[in-house]
C-alpha cells in the first residue's frame, strides 16, 4: 500500500477488546425509544405513506364535507340519521388503503374511552338514553375528523386554508410549526439512537446524560429557528407566503361525495 504514513496507534486501539457487559435491566432509553418512534409518526404526513392515487380527493370538497357532516351530526336529534352517517363514514374508511384504515380504526376505542370519561358524570343527571345518544354523536364527530386528518396531508390543509382567504401570516406560522416539530422530533430520535449506540455498559449518571441530551436539543432548536429565519430573509422573504399549488381537478369520487352530502342534507331537513 502506498503512502503509509507513520501513525502512532495506541496499544489499546490496535488490540481486540475483551469486554463483556454485565446483566442489567433495560435502561430508560431502551424502554422508551419505541414510544418515541410512535410519537414521531404522529408528525409524519399520513398520505405520504401511501402512493395510491385512488383516494386523492379534492381537499376543498373534503373540508366542506367534513364541516357539513359535523354540523349535521351535532344538530341532529334523530338516532336513525346518526346511524346513517356512521354507516356512510365506515364505508368511506373501508375504501381507504389498509394502513390508513388501521390507524383510524385503532383510534376509535381510545376516543370512546375519553368521551365516556367526560360524559360519565352526566349519567347521574339525565337518563341513560340521552347520554348514549350524546356519546354516539361525539364519537362520530371524532371519527369524521380523524378521517379527514388521515386523508389529507398538512400541506393539503394549508392550501385549503389559503383558498378560504386565511391571512398569510397564520398559514405561514402553522406551516413552519409543523415542519419544525417534525425536524425537532427527528433530531430527538437520532440523538437518542446515538446515545443508545454508545451505551455499552452501566451509566452511573443516566439522568444527567438525559438532561444533557435535552439541553443540546434545546440549543439546537434555538439555532435552527434563527438559521431558518436568516435563510428565508436572505432569499427575500417579505411576509407574503406563496407556494406551488398542484391543480386539483374534480374527479368522480368528489362528485359522488358532493351528491351524497347533499342527499344527507335533504335527509336531515325532512
Amino acid at each position: 500500500m502506498k503512502n503509509q504514513k507513520y501513525l502512532n496507534m495506541p496499544d489499546w486501539l490496535s488490540s481486540p477488546e475483551n469486554y463483556s457487559p454485565v446483566k442489567q435491566k433495560n435502561t430508560f432509553l431502551q424502554q422508551n425509544r419505541g414510544r418515541l418512534l410512535n410519537l414521531l409518526s404522529l408528525f409524519s404526513d399520513k398520505t405520504e405513506t401511501t402512493s395510491q392515487p385512488l383516494n386523492r380527493q379534492n381537499s376543498f370538497i373534503q373540508l366542506l364535507t367534513t364541516i357539513t357532516l359535523i354540523l349535521l351530526t351535532s344538530l341532529s336529534r334523530n338516532i336513525s340519521f346518526i346511524w346513517i352517517i356512521y354507516m356512510y363514514q365506515f364505508l368511506q374508511i373501508a375504501l381507504l388503503p389498509k394502513l390508513n384504515m388501521l390507524t383510524i380504526l385503532k383510534r376509535i376505542p381510545i376516543n370512546l374511552v375519553f368521551v365516556l370519561l367526560f360524559i360519565l358524570p352526566s349519567f347521574f343527571l339525565t337518563d341513560a338514553k340521552t347520554v348514549i345518544f350524546f356519546v354516539l354523536k361525539t364519537n362520530l364527530i371524532l371519527i369524521i375528523v380523524s378521517y379527514f386528518m388521515n386523508t389529507n396531508t398538512f400541506f393539503d390543509i394549508i392550501i385549503v386554508l389559503k383558498k378560504c382567504y386565511f391571512p398569510d401570516i397564520i398559514i405561514f406560522i402553522i406551516d413552519i410549526t409543523i415542519k419544525y416539530l417534525k425536524i425537532l422530533s427527528e433530531s430527538l430520535y437520532a440523538m437518542t439512537s446515538a446515545m443508545e449506540l454508545r451505551s455499552v455498559g452501566v451509566n452511573r449518571h443516566q439522568y444527567q446524560s438525559l438532561s444533557n441530551l435535552f439541553g443540546s436539543l434545546y440549543l439546537k432548536t434555538k439555532s435552527t429557528a434563527l438559521e431558518m429565519y436568516s435563510a428565508m430573509e436572505a432569499r427575500g422573504f417579505t411576509g407574503n407566503y406563496h407556494f406551488t399549488r398542484t391543480k386539483q381537478r374534480l374527479n368522480l369520487s368528489d362528485i359522488t361525495q358532493t351528491c351524497i352530502t347533499i342527499f344527507l342534507i335533504t335527509l336531515f331537513f325532512n
Binding site: 477488546e17 469486554y19 463483556s20 457487559p21 454485565v22 446483566k23 442489567q24 435491566k25 433495560n26 435502561t27 431502551q30 443508545e196 449506540l197 454508545r198 451505551s199 455499552v200 455498559g201
Partner: peptide, 16 residues
Amino acid sequence: FKNSVNAKKFHQQVGF
C-alpha cells in the same frame, strides 16, 4: 436487542 447484554456487547463491537 431485547436482551441488554446482547445489545451492549453488539454496540461495543460495532461502532457507528
